[in-house]
């Protein structure tokens, strides 16, 4: 398990105590079940109070936890017969984005997503899921292919943002993202996006233009990382907490603002605590949305998608 977050520490300590007591009881052949049950109830209620009242900053931290399920976990646990496809056919195979074809409950679909690694070595190979232009171009290639064969598309969003640096600038990072936005808006197949962790700015949006945006309960989707926002506006990255609150970017905020269509509940304590429950919840949500969208004819689908994208934004006059 990843390092517990500051606000999780009382819970982690309590859970350690319970484990200790259990092994002590076993070792000494004592019946401490009453005490253990009391403590377990206490842990559950502590868990409820912690995870039921998370601040935007705490949610940011949970969304970034390295032991949350990543793209490959979802692929493995939600789909069957996954065949991974590689490369943008022009420059490279950017492993910050992965994708391929698979069955979802018997329906062939194209899956694409930001791929965070499980350890440092894998993260370096995948550039911490911060894609270069060729990553977005690979994603677009796979989505065009889905369009051709009439396969629905499911995208998984989990990045702190598109890679920023000389190599990205040289190869047209802006254009690569923009191209995905314009082309995704016209794909003739259903497109469902799921924010599974961090939704980092344009680098996230480049896989997120579609018919439905689902967000796991403890995720966020932001115009800029809270640290960067604080650094730029208040010249103090330490004010990230304030920036996180101010930007209203949690799944719950975005549901209210009409950007997120549905929140997928996570098990108590977060998706990393119980992969099976997370998958079950997401699988249900995906199937329901897919059934709805597959019932629409292409014109309807595209008009509804345009209306959904078109309506975002509040102004006066």
């Amino acid at each position: 398990m990843a390092q517990p977050l500051e606000f999780e520490k009382p819970l982690v300590e309590l859970e350690a105590k319970i484990r200790e007591l259990k092994s002590f009881a076993e070792e000494k052949e004592l019946d401490l079940s009453d005490e253990i049950i009391t403590l377990e109830n206490k842990a559950t209620s502590l868990q409820r109070s912690i995870y039921g009242n998370l601040t935007a900053w705490q949610k940011t931290q949970i969304a970034r936890q390295p032991d949350r399920p990543n793209f490959y976990d979802y692929v493995q646990l939600l789909f069957t017969d996954f065949v991974e496809l590689h490369g943008d056919r022009a420059f490279a195979d950017d492993q910050a984005i992965a994708g391929g074809i698979a069955f979802f409950n018997g329906t062939p679909v194209t899956v694409v997503g930001h791929a965070k690694g499980k350890d440092t070595k894998e993260n370096i190979r995948r550039n911490f899921a911060m894609p270069h232009p060729e990553g977005y171009r690979k994603a677009l290639r796979l989505m065009r292919q889905a369009d051709k064969f009439g396969r629905p598309i499911i995208t998984f969003i989990d990045t702190q943002g598109a890679y920023s640096g000389l190599s990205a600038e040289e190869r047209g990072q802006g254009e690569a993202i923009a191209r995905n936005l314009i082309e995704m808006s016209m794909l003739k197949v259903p497109v469902i996006s799921v924010v599974i962790g961090e939704g980092g700015s344009g680098g996230a949006l480049a896989l997120g233009v579609g018919d439905r945006l689902l967000m796991l309960e403890h995720t966020f989707y932001s115009v800029i990382a809270p640290e960067s926002c604080a650094a730029i506006l208040w010249r103090d990255a330490a004010k990230a907490k304030e920036a996180a609150e101010a930007m209203k970017f949690t799944a719950q905020d975005l549901l209210r603002l009409g950007i997120c269509d549905e929140i997928v509940p996570e098990p108590l304590g977060g998706a990393q605590r119980d992969y099976a429950i997370t998958m079950e919840n997401l699988s249900k949500a995906l199937q329901a949305n897919l059934t709805d969208l597959c019932a629409l004819d292409t014109t309807d689908l595209l008009n509804k998608r345009y209306a959904k994208i078109r309506q975002v934004g509040v102004y006066s006059g």
């Binding site: 970017f249 950007i259 975002v312």
Partner: peptide, 8 residues
Amino acid sequence: GTLALMQM
């Protein structure tokens, strides 16, 4: 915030 992002 995200409302601005979505203008893209």
